[in-house]
Simulated assay, not measured.
Amino acid sequence: MRILVVGGTGTIGQAVVSKLRKEHEVITAGRTSGDVQVDLTATESIESLFKKVGHVDAIVNASGAATFKLVEDMTPEDNLVAVQSKLLGQINLALIGQKYLRNHGSITLTTGVMKDDPIPGGASAALANGGVAAFVKSAAIDFTHGIRINCVSPNVLVESFEQYKESFRGFTPVPVERVATAYVKSVEGKQTGQEYQIY
């Protein structure tokens, strides 16, 4: 398979790419790194990405930004970061990318534990995560030509827990390898409309 991984140089993305490259051709994309560049907050940038990459068998997104700030301190502008990147950015990747997906292709997006298990300052990210999960569940029944769509919801990672432990007190971090396996399941499996929660 020919697979596009957006966010392929991040912690999760690298682990996903490492697993998929064993059997597939993988193209990585990122804002400033990867084989090709893309800004998920700009639809013209997503269009340009697919014009460069061409048709693929699977699209994986392991990226998305959000502002972490207490709701009492948050402005609408702060909230827009998650809305434009993690929510609309991923949905637009799916909407535009579907035109470049071969029959029986798949789309895998990313949500996160915060929509199910809140942390201080995580409301904006949780909003985006919830929106993506709802979109995936509903969009799955619309796709034809065997196209599938799923998302992966990771917990805080073992590999980055030291950096984020103040926000995730009492959480049990998960290894990135386990999270990456869920993306492989989404790409290589047959399920659709699923959210793989790795908690």
Rank of each mutant, 00 (worst) to 15 (best):
G10A: 11
V71S: 14
G122C: 13
T67D: 13
L157I: 04
A94T: 05
T32K: 12
S18K: 14
L93N: 01
G193E: 00
L80H: 13
V38P: 13
K99R: 13
S48Y: 05
T110K: 13
V174I: 12
G146L: 11
G122D: 15
A180C: 13
S124A: 15
E77H: 09
A15V: 12
S106P: 11
Y164W: 11
I59S: 04
A66L: 03
Q14G: 13
E25T: 10
V83M: 09
Y100W: 15
H145L: 14
E195G: 01
A15Q: 04
T111M: 03
R21L: 05
L93V: 06
I3T: 10
Y100M: 04
I3S: 04
F143C: 13
P175K: 13
A15L: 11
G121F: 09
G30Y: 05
L88K: 12
F50G: 06
K190W: 10
V6F: 12
L70N: 12
V16I: 15
L87P: 00
H104N: 15
A42P: 00
G146D: 07
R2L: 00
F50V: 02
K19Q: 15
V81D: 03
G54K: 01
V113E: 13
V6C: 08
M114F: 03
I46S: 05
I46H: 06
I46C: 03
Q14L: 14
V56Q: 06
V81M: 03
S124H: 12
Q90Y: 01
E44F: 07
E159C: 11
I59C: 06
G193T: 02
D78Y: 00
L40H: 02
L127A: 14
V16C: 08
Q90I: 00
D57M: 03
L93K: 02
R102C: 02
E72V: 03
Q194R: 15
G8W: 08
F168S: 07
I198A: 09
A125F: 14
S18R: 08
D116H: 11
E188Y: 01
Y164R: 08
R178D: 08
A126D: 10
V56Y: 05
A15H: 00
R2F: 01
V176T: 12
T181W: 09
S85E: 06
N61Q: 01
V156T: 15
V53S: 07
S138M: 10
A123H: 08
S138Y: 01
K185G: 00
D117M: 08
N79F: 10
T75W: 01
V36K: 07
F171Y: 15
H104V: 13
S48G: 09
A140F: 15
F168D: 14
D78I: 04
R31A: 01
A128G: 08
Y196F: 15
P173F: 10
V176S: 14
T67C: 09
V136K: 02
G146M: 11
R169T: 11
G170E: 09
V179C: 00
G105T: 02
V56T: 06
I27H: 10
S186V: 00
K115T: 12
F68P: 02
A58W: 08
